[in-house]
Nucleic acid binder design. Sequence first.
DNA 1: CGCCTTGTTGCATACGGATGCAAATTGGAA
DNA 2: TTCCAATTTGCATCCGTATGCAACAAGGCG
Lengths: 355, 355
Amino acid sequence: MRKQGSPSLQGEPSGEAFSRKPITARELARMLGVSQSAVSRAFTPGASIAADLRERILKYAAEVDYQPNAIASMLSKSRTNIIGIVVSDMQNPFYPGLIEKLSRSLQRIGLQSLLFNITKGSNLEEQLSALRRYNVDAVIVISATILSGSTLSWATEGRPAILINRVIEDTNLSCVACNNVEGARAIADHFHRQGARRVAYVAGLSHTTTNRERQSGFVTRIAELGMTLSVQIEGQEYSYHAGRKAALEIAAGKSTDAIFFANDILAIGGIDALKEEAGCRVPDDILVAGFDDIPMAGWPHYNLTTFRQPVDEIVRVVVEMIEGDTSALLRAATTIRLSGELIERRSTGAEPDAE
Amino acid sequence: MRKQGSPSLQGEPSGEAFSRKPITARELARMLGVSQSAVSRAFTPGASIAADLRERILKYAAEVDYQPNAIASMLSKSRTNIIGIVVSDMQNPFYPGLIEKLSRSLQRIGLQSLLFNITKGSNLEEQLSALRRYNVDAVIVISATILSGSTLSWATEGRPAILINRVIEDTNLSCVACNNVEGARAIADHFHRQGARRVAYVAGLSHTTTNRERQSGFVTRIAELGMTLSVQIEGQEYSYHAGRKAALEIAAGKSTDAIFFANDILAIGGIDALKEEAGCRVPDDILVAGFDDIPMAGWPHYNLTTFRQPVDEIVRVVVEMIEGDTSALLRAATTIRLSGELIERRSTGAEPDAE
DNA sequence: CGCCTTGTTGCATACGGATGCAAATTGGAA
DNA sequence: TTCCAATTTGCATCCGTATGCAACAAGGCG
């Protein structure tokens, strides 16, 4: 242990002053002639301490700019007040908004967000081992992909974990997701109302649960309505370029009245390809719909009909799960489905309400 | 302190098994018949320990799934290996990409990112006090606005702080920024080459350094080239809607050949307004340029000429500053300017190279 | 007026790992 | 063979806060 040098008179040439160590509870206590416990209690709501003592301590603490050291507090309590947020794709504009709202809501109840950016290439286990070492109070996973359920179980072992927009049954992981089947069916119904009969589906990452649910919901409803599935394109990723490529394939193939892209960023890439490269008009020649309702979907050039994910509600539910008895989450993984909302815009020929 | 119950034979009804506490270095040491120091040293690169002992410990640790507790380590060392990232605007698509690259690079050298999402409305001091309590090793500020230099100095007191895309002189804060003046001048030159003579500037948040530099760089160069500044619009924010609004104002006013928007998201809002609402053609009737080179700038509908910020280099420099002797950053705040690159696209009538 | 209850306060120690220092071991040189 | 230096190892203590427990004070009641 490096001993803090006693304040020598033959002082350092100055300059050292601003990086001095922060004051500790013990020091503060000594200055006030009370015990360190008293200081700790003053900062602990509900602790057994007289009101006037607490006030005196807090006042003096403010004067000398004392704040309890969070690290030390983490060590002695079990809680860190840190939530691990596992992310793998911030390129999809849907996620930044979600992450922002999430971290704000968490902050509001005193929780900080520790970001774990998972990359496809490298060693996942190594990347996630930090998640375990940091003793986060809970883990929120916003990665639709990449991590297998078993990897996640390992990484979050012993602490509550909530997946957003991904559902894994029979693990100890809780899930909060949009009702993708409902959304996909709503899109199918809407296509039908708009007169489409031959429709196509463009997948995002094929093996993700979001994709599978949207796909099966759509395809099933299409059949129920007596519509034809003209093309179905498998996907490697949820991206602008993937959407573009898929749209060109569809435009080159058999006639199609409407395309449902697995999410908005795909759909936007698709619209651009259709308009700029394939020479199609949207919605005159072909209808297009997406899923999520990212900001760009509302831009006039796209005006994309989509199924809006209930982001605020997702955030609310996740935060409630964490705020509530987290140990309950450990006993019994919960899966919650939230309803979204069909947003009809011009890309499917709807006349959007003034927004 | 809650004592860890001795493993009673009359066990809990099961169920408790999966949430048992992780093993500690002391326990591991006892099992191996070595001291806790040995375990600690085995995990400390360069520590004084025999190679075979280290190997034996690491091997056994892997077997019983032991990992050093990061919190405890933070308390005894001075380092937390956590970098605070202060963000205030994730809506601007420029930032998610930056944040993602930054956090990845930090992770690569063993640093985690703790997110501090600063909201305009509420009590900043309170929001930032967490930044101090968590003892982060350094702070990276990606907020072009909101926080005053003095607030930041207070919040980061005693630890290295680096502002990205914002320059504050005469504080203890280091800065890494794009050369905004160079970029703005490049845009002015480009406008001139493309034949524009009456040009407009649309500000983002007026009082931010990025805005001031881009504005003065542009306006100065305009004058040097003998061009006229037809309009100059002050701004409240860097957003799609602000860009839209500004474009409409300009379209309604005196004739203008070209508009330089303070960043891409403004420009994109501007293009939409010009095309869809004002009935102007871009670039036929008016040229448009932005700044940043966000992904949407490359989308065919916008095809926006812009000045690309050297994101990778910014990240590299910031990480190097942190990786290097951080204490040096405390003694002498450094300001680094990086060069960007003019990306000529169709919004100014340029024929883009095939990308 | 004495005893018990309720409320405060301090003491001691725990949390889990890092590290200065001394003790122990080994190897090599004289 | 003897002694010193280099390397390893363990002991003890520290990091800064939280909290069980005991001591202590004040107030109420019989």
